[in-house]
Nucleic acid binder design. Structure first.
Lengths: 352, 352
DNA sequence: CTGAAAGCGCTAACAG
DNA sequence: CTGTTAGCGCTTTCAG
């Protein structure tokens, strides 16, 4: 490996502009107390020489690393990549996070971390020591891992916890789950549905509960029974099939179903169709997440969009404008929205 | 922003082990000329203190940055992310590239670069100056951009050109396009098809030509006409519809179609179905790329898998085992494979 | 085989 | 407002 050196350094700029290193440094970092004329002269040299500061050197001298680290669960992420089922969490994360970082001259790098490992702390600690990120974004199931949040706050590294409402250090950010469930339920009620089924997600994820809470709250507010048509699921296709069968066996059967994710909605669609029901004629369907698959079903699925990109974008902003006072602020909620496609309609007037 | 310092540095390890900094450095970098006993003693201290070298500091003192940079086209990547059509190029890139990097203690970061910009060179130059990656992976349409390859080789940064067969500096790596087209064609011929249609991709991409070349070669080798059933396309759904209509209007019509990507195959499926043809009964279909959408059609699409992950994995290996002699080696070809699903079958015996 | 010295490119702290 | 002086943590010379 050839030993490479910086082509043009702060020294070159300083001597070219006939000023001290410090002045150049001040200009680079946009610090005050530099006379405009001076600043212009230095900037001219910078442009002329095509100078770009070395992040490594900046970091070395105790400044920032200009790196924001996003952390995802290793096992789940790799499994999703291998399965190639069209899940695009990582892509949306990058879309929101990378672009927002770029706006501020930062860079987002992302790491896979083993939750199950008993040495999460060491693993993460090593990455942090090596990279020295200026901020970290945690995603479930890491967001509420005390080993991780503890380590981060001990090291005084600002961090955001996505999908967490717990108080404590770091910014808690949620993705509108409860509100979205209300939105979906209200929409169906508005269409004329009264018996609305709900397939819950795995209790391993807090958002499963929030989504159900929203459903229950909305049903209750309309004077509808929030319990009779609520069935458990675990986000898998198989659990969606089971829940749908259970729901359709109820007399009178529901005229609409909200599934807590797209896979289970897909299962509901297939199951209902197999039973001779027409979607949305006989049964309306709304799914959560709005991953690409919602576009490939027939009919296309009306879905609640999980605002992944917007959430990461917000997380980056929180991290970079960080003022310690807002640290313990109440959770930030990024609302999701309902994307109306072809799987929802008014119930038949002759519905049982 | 609190000023953060490395918690445990090489100094701590040195004093803990009672040796000089150099010795620790040698152990870290696995250099020879360290007595085993010494090495063990130092390693023990490292483990005990949980020491991890700072990449910034390593890079500063003229060593490696342990960073491999993958470059993708900004516009196209962002458009794909926004469209949420299930394209998973980035995910597969990460799957192959990140994991392979991790094996060697490297990290993959990825950048979006504007091709159309007239200052690609400056843009990329800045990123490189800032990050100082030890290697770069170029993807189309950057792979054959002389501004980029020139800059990289001037800076003596090892790089790989994915989807390029041009000679010159850097490793050229292809993804088996021609061979895969042969594979698909041969498979259809083996099934009994004689009139096989081909929908080509946009000429902006070299791989479009390679895929067509494979089709032509295979057809010719079987004594079949490689021209009559070959239609142009541009990878878009709309162009797929047009090409399919053109193909199905030919008398006698083809009994099978190979589309140069999944979107056009999807278009072919929809178009054929709309004309009352049954896939695969009346028409067999093979697509290229094997993106997630192939799993969501009815029937599911038989497809040629574009080996994205394997290719990036290979690129990283080439970059890290780099010996200058192999620099101009002939292009490396990572073969693709045929994933057989439900859109292919033998032609009807009574086919026209 | 191991140690001591000299930076890498940049910024913090302090002078002027 | 600008310049000077120390390092940051590590690796490279070059001595022992």
């Amino acid at each position: 490996m050839a030993r490479r050196r910086q082509a043009v350094t702060i020294k070159h700029v300083a001597s070219d502009a006939g000023v001290s290193l410090q002045t150049v440094s001040r200009v680079i970092n946009n610090e005050p107390n530099v006379r405009p004329a001076m600043k212009q002269r230095v900037q001219a040299s910078i442009d002329k020489l095509g100078y770009v500061p070395s992040i490594a050197a900046q970091r070395m001298s105790g400044s920032r690393s200009y790196l924001i680290m996003a952390i995802n669960d290793r096992e789940r992420t790799i499994a999703d990549w291998r399965a190639r089922q069209g899940g695009d969490w990582i892509d949306q994360m990058l879309l929101g996070g990378m672009l927002k970082c770029a706006e501020y001259g930062y860079r987002m790098i992302f790491e896979l971390v083993d939750t199950h490992s008993d040495h999460v702390e060491r693993e993460l600690g090593a990455t942090i020591a090596a990279l020295q990120p200026d901020g970290v974004i945690l995603t479930p199931p890491h967001s509420d891992n005390p080993l991780i949040t503890g380590m981060l706050s001990d090291n005084k590294i600002p961090f955001a916890r996505i999908g967490s409402i717990a108080s404590g250090p770091g910014f808690a950010i949620t993705m509108g789950d409860e509100g979205s469930a209300v939105l979906a339920t209200d929409y169906l009620v508005g269409l004329g549905h009264r018996r609305i089924g709900f397939i819950a997600g795995s209790d391993e994820y807090s958002l499963s509960g929030w989504r159900r809470d929203g459903y229950v709250r909305a049903m209750t507010s309309h004077g509808l029974d929030p319990v009779a048509y609520c069935k458990p699921g675990d986000f898998s296709y198989a659990s969606g099939v089971a829940a749908t069968n259970a729901l359709l066996a109820i007399q009178p059967r529901p005229t609409a179903i909200i599934a807590s994710n797209d896979q289970m909605a897909l299962a509901a669609l297939d199951t209902a169709t197999a039973q001779g029901l027409v979607v949305p004629g006989d049964l309306s369907l709304i799914s959560f997440d709005n991953t690409p698959v919602t576009r490939f079903t027939n009919p296309q699925l009306t879905a609640i969009d999980q605002p992944i990109a917007a959430t990461f974008s917000r997380a980056v902003e929180l991290l970079l404008n960080r003022d310690d006072s807002a640290d313990a602020a109440s959770p930030v909620d990024v609302p999701g929205e309902l994307v109306i496609r072809a799987s929802t309609a008014a119930p038949r007037s002759d519905a049982p």
